[in-house]
């Protein structure tokens, strides 16, 4: 099988590699859930998926990917269906290792806007809203964002903070009352981004094969620093792509 792949496939593979075995992951639908399902199948068999519809430990069936977080497909072979509020409360209690989610608009401190462009009550563009994204960003022990890398998405300051990451840097997350967590990494179609430990500003940690620091900077609406060591990610392997494509044969999320 060819290892050529499209942007959504690259993103899903790179995201799946972030997840470790024997952990719990709160996964949003779409590419994050697809990536979590791939990780579980390939290298993290004891990864426990938590889905906001109130689902713990499902086994997603290849070809029957859920469209929403609370339909029968999402809960296939689940170990527990605690209900929505209680699923989130596991995270508030500190039991969820990783929050895994997408984002419409993201800023240099990792904050995400999925609410509105323009004034909240008179929006130019109204987006669907937070869903559980705010809760995942507030309550998981670590958050990994999975998103296409486009200049219009990577803005200096989001117009509306739907999901808080480091807020304005400088300890404002902790000062707001968020006791733990925060965005550790942003996986994009061009590379892997992290955050400066001091300033909490986003920086480049790795580039995907064929991309450069320059292409990443050209597609980002704010200044991006560099991590002390810059890596190049290994391209998707044939078996990763094969498993991924089998999960979404209708190409609902892989395009």
């Amino acid at each position: 099988m060819s290892t050529l792949c499209n942007a959504a496939e690259l993103l899903a593979v790179m995201a799946s590699r972030q997840l470790r075995d024997d952990t719990t992951v709160f996964a949003g639908v779409g590419v994050p859930l697809l990536a979590a399902a791939l990780a579980k199948q390939r290298h993290a068999p004891r990864l426990t998926l938590v889905i906001e519809g109130g689902i713990i430990g499902p086994e997603i069936a290849p070809g029957r990917l859920p469209i929403s977080t609370n339909e029968m497909r999402a809960g296939r072979r689940a170990q527990m269906l605690p209900g929505i509020t209680d699923a989130f409360l596991f995270a508030q209690r500190g039991f969820v290792d990783v929050g895994f989610m997408g984002g419409a608009q993201i800023d240099q401190y990792g904050n995400i806007n999925t609410t509105a462009i323009g004034d909240y009550w008179k929006p130019k563009v109204r987006l669907p809203g937070t869903g559980g994204a705010n809760d995942i960003a507030s309550l998981c022990r670590e958050v990994i964002i999975v998103t296409a890398h486009e200049k219009r998405r990577f803005v200096p300051r989001v117009e509306f903070v739907t999901s808080p990451a480091w807020l304005r840097g400088d300890g404002s997350r902790r000062a707001a009352g968020l006791l733990f967590g925060g965005v550790s990494r942003v996986v994009t179609t061009l590379g892997l981004l992290g955050f400066d430990p001091e300033t909490k500003r986003m920086l480049i940690e790795a580039v995907h094969a064929g991309e450069t620091v320059e292409t990443i900077r050209a597609n980002t609406g704010f200044e991006l620093g560099l991590a002390p060591t810059l890596e190049t990610t290994a391209p998707p392997a044939a078996d990763e792509l094969e498993m991924l494509r089998a999960l979404d044969p209708e190409r609902r999320f892989l395009g």
């Binding site: 509020t85 869903g131 507030s138 968020l178």
Partner: peptide, 27 residues
Amino acid sequence: SHLALGLRFRAGAMGVPFLPALTMLGS
């Protein structure tokens, strides 16, 4: 937020005026 709305119903269900929580803060 999804949890906040769930807790709004839960506070109602419990007959208390509010519930303390760690979500939505700073947003």
